[in-house]
Simulated assay, not measured.
Amino acid sequence: MTNFLSGIFIQFFNAIHNLVEGIIANPDISFGVTIIVFTIIIRVLLLPLSLKQTKSTVKMSAIQPEVKKIQEKYKKDPQKAQQEVMKIYKENDVSPMGGCLPMLIQFPILIALFYVFQHIDYQGAGFLWLTDLTKSDPLYILPVLSGITTYFSTRSMQGSADEAAAKQASTMNIGMSIFFTFMSFKFAGALVLYWVINNGIQLLQNLLLKKEYKKPEVL
């Protein structure tokens, strides 16, 4: 799967770079711009999934008051409470794992891009303060941005939940942000640049979509 995606992405990236290079000949600009354009196109392709995820998040927020009532009503019978909660989820066509799907899909893409940026001929090309996109950020700016943008973009995907679930989600979010920050210190600047731009676009997209969708009536 990874090799298949890598092959497609390499051809796709090279095609975009050829177009960008026709306008911007300087490799210290063209490769960085290509990564930005490439990231935007990937986000556009994932837009249908993002729309579905945002709708699910908004619906999840809307049904939380009913979920809390059920949990309070059947607090002495957790199994019955779980059954009733799942019934509400089914009636309102939401999944408690719906918000995780976009992030899970990002992982094979990220792994494929790890190989892509190892096989694309961009040796020595830099971008902004990065003198070489094949190497890690010497100023540690991108790794820090990676952690910050991962936290806020993931947080923007989460809907309102009960206190325990919210605490668990927050802990996982912080852990994931720390993980990406740590890994970004080792990854090539090109890959981390992609991840930071991807997170920024995703955050903006989620905020705009949440404003667009109104909370639905609970069935």
Rank of each mutant, 00 (worst) to 15 (best):
M1Q: 11
M1N: 09
M1E: 08
M1G: 12
M1V: 11
M1Y: 11
T2E: 11
T2S: 08
N3Y: 12
N3P: 00
F4A: 15
F4G: 04
F4T: 15
F4P: 02
F4L: 15
L5S: 03
L5I: 08
S6Y: 10
S6H: 03
S6V: 10
G7R: 07
G7S: 10
G7F: 01
G7N: 14
I8Y: 11
I8V: 14
F9I: 04
F9V: 10
F9W: 06
F9Y: 15
F9P: 00
F9D: 00
Q11A: 13
Q11E: 14
Q11P: 01
Q11K: 15
Q11N: 15
Q11C: 03
F12Y: 08
F13S: 02
F13C: 00
F13A: 03
F13E: 01
F13P: 00
N14R: 12
N14H: 10
A15W: 14
A15P: 08
A15E: 07
A15S: 15
I16F: 06
I16L: 11
H17G: 04
H17N: 14
H17T: 02
H17S: 03
H17M: 03
H17P: 06
N18A: 14
N18L: 10
N18R: 11
N18G: 15
N18F: 09
N18T: 10
L19Y: 08
L19I: 13
V20Y: 02
V20W: 08
V20M: 03
E21W: 08
E21R: 09
E21P: 00
G22K: 10
G22R: 14
I23M: 13
I23H: 04
I23T: 14
I23F: 12
I23P: 02
A25H: 14
A25V: 12
A25G: 06
A25K: 15
N26V: 02
N26F: 09
P27N: 05
P27C: 03
D28C: 01
D28Q: 03
I29N: 10
I29R: 04
I29S: 05
I29A: 06
I29W: 12
S30D: 03
S30T: 06
S30K: 07
S30A: 12
F31E: 02
